[in-house]
């Protein structure tokens, strides 16, 4: 009758040693099995009975090599499904080449959660306020999914389908997040607004990645978190800037467009109006940081 946080429901725990073992288990049990990486999102959801209770937890942490993070100038950044949020935040490649990703990873949750939770898990949970998502959207990342029907690559922009919903099939797992190499001279930023100074959820998150040459905006990608059912890009705002001379007026116009293109909700964390207003403020700050010296 009462539905407070409870103890974990009774579950069968499975610890595969290889990817094949994990995938064939998923194939056999489909929705009755749930993948378990860091568990920082799944465990509270299970305790709260907010998700269907699976029969099996398939712990990926017994499989070697899934926590790799690699980078080269051609292939870009590859993030394995068990790479923790801390690993991203402390990875020299990420710090050097993807500042927006670094800022997103270091702003997430608490040090304990960052040490335990995985970056891929944050994507797969598909919470609209996930900090990792706007940065990945602005960087035009893609995810490699592996399942019964084989492997497929999905652009991150097509991965999220709704709050806590993705294109992942019951028997699929995310194998890798791929982020293209940064364009020469590009800059990036992730700005997060939360009530407190740390360990808090984003009311609004704005990522921008772009290049400005001789005062002209060569390219710009703007992505927003926590202001729509999924993290979103704002193409109209981007189109305002692309190929144009960067002026305060045009940044203003693009920021207004970003604010008008989102569809935030009113809830106990913030009102719709405040969220929309803050998209404008944060977009303006982000664009100034990326496009103006």
């Amino acid at each position: 009758m009462s539905q407070f946080y409870r103890r974990l429901p009774r579950l069968q725990y499975f610890l595969p040693k290889t990817l094949d073992e994990a995938l064939s288990f998923l194939k056999e049990h489909k929705a009755a099995a749930r993948l378990f990486a860091g568990g920082t999102d799944l465990v509270p959801q299970l305790k709260k009975r907010e998700t269907d209770i699976p029969l099996y937890l398939v712990d990926l942490k017994g499989i070697q090599g899934l926590d790799a993070i690699t980078y080269d100038e051609v292939a870009g950044l590859k993030i394995g499904p068990l790479a923790t949020i801390s690993a991203i935040a402390t990875c020299p490649f990420v710090q050097d080449h993807y500042p927006s990703l670094f800022q997103a990873a270091s702003s997430m949750a608490s040090p304990q959660v960052r040490n335990r939770g995985t970056f891929a898990g944050n994507i797969c949970s598909a919470v609209p306020s996930a900090d990792s998502a706007p940065a990945l959207l602005a960087l035009e990342a893609s995810v490699r999914l592996l399942g019964r029907k084989g492997e497929r690559e999905v652009p991150i922009g097509q991965f999220f389908t709704g709050p806590r919903k993705t294109v992942l099939e019951a028997d699929e797992m995310l194998l890798e997040i791929g982020v293209p190499s940064p364009k020469p001279g590009s800059r990036g930023v992730y700005l997060k607004l939360s009530p407190r100074h740390s360990m808090d959820l984003a009311i609004v998150g704005v990522a921008a990645v772009g290049t400005c040459e001789d005062g002209m905006c060569k390219d710009i990608k703007i992505a927003l978190g926590a202001v729509a059912p999924t993290p979103i890009r704002v193409p109209a705002a981007e189109a305002t800037l692309e190929g144009k001379r960067v002026t305060p007026g045009i940044i203003e116009e693009a920021s207004q467009k970003a604010a008008s293109q989102c569809s935030p909700i009113d809830d106990h964390r913030a009102s719709q109006e405040y969220r929309r207003d803050m998209v404008y403020i944060l977009a303006r700050r982000a664009l100034n940081r990326v496009l103006v010296q």
Partner: peptide
């Protein structure tokens, strides 16, 4: 500046320390 229970017809909408915002050490 932070703390308040957000109520909806008698129901507390933020009965966790994630959403009932007490100052963290960094605040």
């Amino acid at each position: 500046i932070y703390e308040d229970f957000i109520m909806d017809r008698g129901k507390t909408l933020n009965p966790t320390f994630l959403d009932y915002k007490m100052p963290r050490s960094t605040d």
